[in-house]
Amino acid sequence: MNGAEHVKQAVPFRCEGVAVVLLKKSLNQYLVLMLKRAGRMLHNEWCYVGGGIEKGEKAWEAALREVHEETGIMEVRLYSANQFEQYYSPKEDYIYTAPVFVGYVDDSQPVRLNHEHIEYQWMTFEEAKENAALPGIDDILEFVEKHFARKAPSEWLRINGDKE
């Protein structure tokens, strides 16, 4: 390198949002709520609940708010999935990462979409993985199925609102 120092450039990480996989038990299995996006980003693609963290919010508070805003669902038993959704933005050269939460909801709660989505469907895990908009979402769904649907989650991951 002719004595010149090689300077390395780091790709910045941004953690400004959350992802929430909502589950409800139907007959003998858990179903996943998938939403079809209306906006320009991932337009017409199936995703789970997600959104930004507002100033002063904890990530889990943002998760509950996004669930309320995007689905109208108010009663959620929330857990940290101990997983992260992530992707690289080539346009802006950063790595986006978001903590993933899992919310159990009662079958009786109706879904009321806001303007961000045009359609919703409670899907089996297989259907949700097949319809997932981006690679990586299917891996998160696989993880959630293994640790939150096939067995009871650890109480250490439970989020108890104001007790946290």
Rank of each mutant, 00 (worst) to 15 (best):
N2I: 01
E5Q: 08
E5I: 09
E5F: 01
H6K: 15
K8C: 02
Q9W: 10
F13W: 03
R14V: 12
C15A: 13
E16N: 12
V21A: 11
K24C: 05
K25P: 00
K25V: 01
Q29S: 10
L31W: 02
V32R: 03
V32S: 12
K36E: 15
A38G: 05
G39T: 14
R40K: 14
R40F: 06
R40Q: 13
L42I: 03
W46D: 06
W46E: 04
W46Q: 08
Y48H: 11
V49W: 08
G50R: 05
G52W: 05
K55P: 01
G56T: 03
E57A: 04
A59T: 03
A62I: 04
L64Q: 12
H68T: 08
G72N: 07
I73L: 10
M74F: 01
V76N: 02
R77E: 15
Y79Q: 08
Q86K: 11
Q86T: 06
Y87R: 11
Y87G: 06
S89P: 01
P90A: 13
K91Y: 13
E92F: 06
D93M: 12
Y94D: 11
A98W: 00
F101W: 02
F101R: 01
V102G: 04
D107L: 14
V111P: 03
L113S: 10
L113M: 10
E116P: 00
H117Y: 15
Y120E: 06
T124Y: 02
E126G: 08
E126C: 05
E126T: 13
N131Q: 13
A133N: 04
D138M: 06
D139M: 13
D139E: 14
L141T: 10
E142P: 00
V144T: 11
A149S: 15
A152G: 06
A152L: 13
P153M: 00
S154G: 05
W156D: 14
W156F: 12
R158P: 00
N160Q: 09
G161T: 11
G161A: 05
G161E: 09
D162K: 11
K163P: 00
